[in-house]
């Protein structure tokens, strides 16, 4: 059951992620990215991160991607023109990426060969209560700093977006 779960949603994630990269229209990419994020939330659930799964849907799919789609609709962005890009990127890009991916996978298999199997329910520390407790005790300072960061981001976005009004 755990394997089937992982394989099904892992496959959805990979197919949607490939779609993000190969689609020429930004809206298609955005919809695929929503698929990636939704399936990742389900994988988080399997890994016992309940709060993160909910936050993934609320923050990423519910807010960030809506913002993306909003901007794409607002700018009425059409399909990308067939820009070719530099020669080196076209020739070496895919092989180099495959080498990079192979290296990463090899390192992972080498370093984490003795990890145990992932069974749903082995780790229950990701509930909202546990995350909240850690967030407001051990990680209080980073949490407060993040809130300041968000404030700065809000102000920055407002200043950038209101420039054309005057």
């Amino acid at each position: 059951m755990n394997t089937v779960f992982f394989l099904v949603f892992g496959l959805i994630v990979v197919v949607c992620a490939i779609n993000v990269v190969v689609q020429r229209h930004p809206i298609s990419s955005a919809i695929s990215l929503i698929g990636v994020m939704g399936s990742l939330a389900i994988i988080y659930l399997q890994l016992g991160a309940e709060f993160m799964a909910a936050a993934q849907i609320i923050v990423y799919t519910g807010a960030v991607m809506v913002l993306f789609i909003f901007v794409i609709m607002l700018l009425n962005a059409g399909s990308e023109e067939g820009g070719k890009g530099p020669l080196t990127v076209r020739l070496l890009g895919v092989p180099l990426l495959l080498v990079f991916l192979g290296l990463l996978s090899y390192l992972i298999q080498r370093l984490f060969s003795d990890t145990g199997p992932v069974r749903f329910g082995d780790f229950k520390g990701g509930s909202p209560a546990d995350v909240g407790r850690a967030l407001f005790s051990t990680y209080l300072l980073p949490f407060e700093i993040t809130s300041v960061l968000i404030l700065i981001a809000i102000l920055g976005a407002i200043v950038l977006a209101r420039k054309e009004l005057d």
Binding site: M1, N2, T3, V4, F6, L7, G10, V13, V14, A17, I18, V20, V21, V36, I43, L47, G93, V94, L97, F100, L101, L104, S105, I108, Q109, F112, S113, T115, G116, P117, V118, R119
Partner: peptide, 24 residues
């Protein structure tokens, strides 16, 4: 089919996603 996959599969999935992001 094994009853559960090892953790490294999740990490490989993450690596694949990251590479696709870089490619994009």
């Amino acid at each position: 089919m094994p009853a559960a996959v090892p953790l490294s599969w999740y990490l490989v999935l993450s690596a694949v996603l990251f590479s696709l992001g870089v490619a994009g």
